[in-house]
């Protein structure tokens, strides 16, 4: 066989393989999903479940208000994400430093990380939201949205600080050596050589924490803040229909799923580069 003919044969075989793979994927998906649907939709309880969780009528009446309330979630997690990115980096830099002058600050940073990572987020929100106003300090804000936001930012700041710190630690010492050898100061070496590499490496875990934060914003509802989950609950409680909760779930998915896809994309690209 000539080279050209063999190449054509190889390409043909490859195409056939791809087509066979696609066919198998389609058929098996149809079987599994079809089977599951059949199981659910033919079950004796399905009509009741459909009416309680997936009522088109309840969805139509509740969705506009839930969507409006969801804007509060979006605003909160956007602002908190920015705060957390900066706060986490500052804490990580403080903890990664070695200057003995800053020992007390390093100690405070370490204690902060331990405490805010160790206490359940819901408890932090509760304590901030009810504890701080109870102190009656003058000049301290009493707005529950602000207080809940503080609690979330501090909790996630502690997680993110540890993510950054792991990233900084993963950049090999030889990179710092090389930066110093070309005449940079320690600060310049950190700024131009270590941090850019560290941040690139921690993008996947950072996005992961953000996905988690975008859901945890719903926890502020315990302070009576009317965000999407709370709004859905109000509807559910007055009508004994849970469709509004499903509507709220869809809204959370609408922001977390794109985030997850971005994460997949970055991770895949990282593997190609590695």
């Amino acid at each position: 066989m000539t080279k050209g003919a063999r190449q054509a044969a190889r390409e043909k075989a490859k195409k056939a393989r791809t087509r066979r793979g696609q066919t198998i994927a389609v058929v098996s998906s149809a079987v599994v999903l079809g089977g599951l649907s059949a199981l659910i939709f033919t079950s004796s309880g399905w009509p009741d479940v459909q009416e309680t969780f997936f009522s088109a009528e309840a969805f139509r009446t509740s969705f506009p208000d839930i969507l409006k309330a969801f804007w509060l979630d979006v605003k909160m997690f956007l602002v908190i994400e920015v705060v957390v990115l900066v706060l986490g980096l500052v804490i990580a830099l403080v903890r990664s430093g070695r200057n003995p002058v800053f020992f007390p600050i390093r100690l405070i940073a370490a204690v902060y990380c331990d405490i805010f990572r160790g206490v359940p987020v819901i408890l932090l929100i509760y304590m901030f939201g009810f504890g701080i106003p109870a102190l009656g300090l003058s000049g301290v804000p009493n707005d529950p949205i602000l207080l809940a936001g503080f609690a979330l930012a501090l909790a996630y700041g502690a997680y993110v600080a540890e993510v950054y710190r792991a990233g900084i630690g993963s950049v090999h010492q030889t990179q710092t050596d090389a930066a110093l050898a070309v005449g940079l100061t320690r600060t310049q070496a950190l700024r131009h050589v270590v941090l850019p590499q560290a941040i690139r490496r921690v993008r996947p875990p950072l996005l992961n924490d953000f996905i988690s934060l975008q859901k945890d914003v719903a926890l502020v509802s315990i302070l009576g803040i009317v965000e999407a989950f709370q709004q859905a609950q109000i509807f559910a409680a007055s009508t004994f229909n849970y469709t509004p909760l499903v509507a709220a779930a869809l809204l959370y998915l609408a922001v977390t799923i794109p985030m997850a896809r971005i994460l997949d994309h970055i991770t895949a690209r990282g593997e190609v580069n590695a």
């Binding site: 030889t174 990179q175 930066a179 005449g183 940079l184 100061t185 310049q188 050589v193």
Partner: peptide, 19 residues
């Protein structure tokens, strides 16, 4: 020990630009 996140030219000039 080149800086992997920088182009070749930036590797060469980082020291003289910043330092």
């Amino acid at each position: 020990n080149l800086f992997p996140h920088m182009s070749v030219i930036d590797n060469v000039t980082l020291g003289i630009v910043r330092g």
